[in-house]
């Protein structure tokens, strides 16, 4: 494992840092997991490739069954990696979050973000939509919690998610962020829920670029889309099974209350 400088255990989740992490304001934590259409995972992977951040840490879930570690060039690393570039932290996960771990993991991540003085937590995810099949370029919407991020989304003309339920870790990020003195938003890109969807990831990244004021090109992502889809077939199968357990796929359903 890389040499760990700082280690913190929050709610049983272990955060390891390979160097001291300090962020200038406005600071961001960008989070994407393998989920609907693998939008979050593909997005984060592309953002890291384009921005070239430093790998500054890792996150481990010690009670994960079966235990898993990822190896690169012989070196073992935790299943989630922490990257940093200037005022932006990013979390890249090699695994979908198991339904049984979503609660503790999400609260631990919010606590960690607060301790590192993050201002905005930005999640990227797919929104399973029957309309996706009819669109060359899918739409992206934002849900938010907090006045500062509301203002940013308005200034950058990011369309808001009009109505529906959000399930999984991003639900916790949205409803609990204020208790951790954070503003939070989730970018939801229309996607094929059970097929890897790099095109959906590209529209999410375009929206993110506007929010954080950093130009992140998506041309390469679109050019390599078919290879990315082939590469991620097995991960998509695994993820689809976990999403079914977590009840994902209900986002687009209307609310019972219509007032």
């Amino acid at each position: 494992m890389p040499k760990v400088k700082n280690e913190e255990e929050i709610e049983g989740i272990v955060f390891q840092e390979y160097e001291d992490i300090e962020l200038n304001s406005p600071s961001y934590l960008i989070v994407g997991f393998p989920d609907a259409g693998l939008v979050g995972g593909i997005s984060i992977s592309h953002i890291i490739r384009e921005m070239g951040p430093m790998e500054v840490g890792g996150i481990d879930i010690p009670r994960l069954t079966p235990p898993v570690v990822f190896v690169k060039d012989g070196e073992a690393k935790p299943p989630m990696k922490l990257f940093k570039k200037e005022n932006i932290l990013m979390i890249a996960s090699e695994i979908p979050i198991p339904a049984t771990t979503i609660q503790v993991f999400s609260y631990a991540l919010l606590e960690y973000a607060m301790r590192r003085r993050v201002d905005f937590v930005i999640g990227i995810t797919g929104l399973g939509s029957g309309e996706r099949v009819n669109k060359e370029k899918p739409s992206v919407f934002a849900a938010y919690s907090g006045e500062k991020i509301k203002k940013v989304l308005g200034e950058k003309s990011i369309p808001l998610f009009s109505e529906g339920a959000i399930l999984g870790p991003f639900a916790i990020f949205l409803k609990e962020a204020r208790r951790f003195r954070l503003d939070s938003t989730v970018l939801l890109a229309e996607a094929f829920p059970e097929l890897p969807d790099p095109e959906a990831a590209s529209v999410a990244i375009e929206a993110l670029s506007k929010i954080i004021d950093v130009n992140i090109g998506v041309q390469k992502l679109l050019e390599e889309a078919e290879y990315i889809r082939l590469r991620n077939r097995e991960l998509m199968k695994q993820t689809a099974r976990l999403m079914a357990q977590a009840g994902r796929g209900a986002e687009a359903q209307p609310s019972l209350l219509y007032t």
Binding site: T65, P66, P98, E194, R231, L235, M236, Q238, L242
Partner: peptide
């Protein structure tokens, strides 16, 4: 369902030609 399969791990050869669908 927690078993993670990564490209570097083994997969059933029979699944290699089979595309995903929804």
């Amino acid at each position: 369902s927690m078993h993670v399969i990564h490209p570097s791990m083994s997969i059933r050869p029979s699944s290699f030609d089979e595309p995903l669908h929804e």
